[in-house]
Design a protein around this nucleic acid. Structure first.
Lengths: 255, 255
DNA sequence: CGAGGGTTTGAAGTGCATCAAATAGTGTGG
DNA sequence: CCACACTATTTGATGCACTTCAAACCCTCG
């Protein structure tokens, strides 16, 4: 079990096996009774790779929390072109807007790595939102946090080049103090990382090579070793309005 | 006065002179007493072009509503490169996250067209959020709506080319039924539209010419005449996951 | 009228996408 | 344990969209 209270992007790279829903910060102001109901009523499903959890346009009836595995959120045009919204791993949540509003899914969700997903019926949460003012505020915080993440994402797409976006992604995976380095594994396929960062696999490969040259990081398969974070920060954060270390994402990994 | 209850992006193009804060849908569940307090305590300021309303990183103490004029929200890297987040006109609001959370501004706000702005102290709203459950939900809706807008924006940046983004922008300005055309004015400078859509003025100029060729629209200065909306929809919406007409934005123009 | 932006046009450069093909890695059945 | 199939990743070559730099044009407003 991973305590999401202290969860950060590191949890992604360490790939925890299971995640306890009770500990997601979204529920920190919910009482034991509600948590118990949550445990009873929510569905836990085991998903295979390739399985589609929900389709864009479908009515949202569940709020999702990933216990393990990996889920890709994406939009698709008529001609089949994909725009990946995000790729989520253990501990992350999605469809949070459905918690308070009747809505239709704004994206598709596909399992890209087998795992377990918890589905919480939205009525349950909508009820809680009415009774528990603190919970309403926590939902608000979750949504707002997602909003800020997207603002940052949008900025990165217009100001950072491919190599800088990868570097920034690595910095978030590392999440250490300035100077300190470390080793970590990519949370998923390079192809998926590429799509997550809005680039082609070929571009990712070349940009990663460039990042290596520029910052002196070591790469072996999916293992990345960083001796000095500042090198990456210097290289990537010059093309961003936030300074390293990024303080944007401190509430939770919720979506 | 413009009734924001029924406001849509058309309001942008018709450039209303003044906007009544009471009618913003955010306040639809607030009682007269609160509205009166709002009128008393909020500041109305007249802004000159070029004036900076707030700086990124400053502590957020006001929620902003634009009565008239035009405000640019942007982020800036150390070397001075800008990333425009949005450009807002009469009836639109910003800094809504400050309504429920102590936060620092994630962007700068600069007046690009002189006008009047209303500043509402966040304490007032934070108080109301505690007392008025419906208001809390309306704030949630406002934030969620902003979130969806950004999701769409992000998709557009990765799937649509420059001409298609302009066409999509026009469709939102027109906001009519399929087939019906119309005439409208750009809500602000072409330079600003370009920055809003994440492209250079030169690119905008060339892409607009391309859009004209592809869809048969008529352009004279800032006046755009569209005979048949479907032509634009056919051209732009093919590179988007939503089909025309876009239903994404039905709550308000809030930000 | 003339100064100063906004807008357009031209020419050249850059970054990423695309297409193609080679190479590495992984899982399968024999 | 190996050979095969299949996928992921890398590398090369080329093309396209957008940017950048430069200059002309145009419009507005003092």
């Amino acid at each position: 079990m991973v305590n999401l209270m202290h969860g950060n992007l590191n949890a992604q790279s360490s790939q925890p096996d299971k995640v306890d829903i009770y500990l997601h910060p979204l529920f920190k102001h919910c009482d034991d009774n509600f948590i118990k109901t949550l445990g009873t009523i929510s569905r836990k499903i085991t998903c295979e790779k390739g399985q589609t959890l929900l389709f864009r346009g479908d009515k949202a009836v569940f709020f999702y929390l990933i216990r393990s595995g990996c889920v890709k959120l994406y939009r698709e045009t008529i001609d089949g072109t994909l725009a990946v919204v995000d790729i989520l791993t253990a501990g992350q949540v999605f469809c949070e807007i459905s918690i308070f509003e009747k809505c239709h899914h704004p994206y598709n969700a596909e399992v890209v790595e087998a795992g377990e997903v918890i589905m919480i019926p939205v009525e349950l949460l909508q009820e809680e939102i009415k009774n528990n003012h603190q919970f309403a505020l926590d939902v608000l915080r979750l949504v707002a946090n997602h909003c800020r993440q997207q603002e940052r994402e949008l900025e990165h797409r217009s100001l950072q080049n491919a190599a800088q976006r990868i570097g920034c992604f690595f910095l978030r995976l590392l999440n250490r103090r300035e100077g300190e380095g470390g080793t970590f594994h990519l949370p998923y396929d390079k192809m998926l990382v590429a799509s997550r960062l809005g680039m082609q696999p070929e571009t990712f490969s070349r940009a990663l090579a460039k990042l290596k040259k520029e910052t002196g990081i070591h790469i072996k398969g999916s293992k990345i070793k960083v001796d000095n974070i500042s090198n990456i920060a210097k290289y990537t954060c010059s093309a961003c309005s936030s300074e390293f270390p990024c303080k944007d994402l401190d509430f939770s990994k919720g979506r």
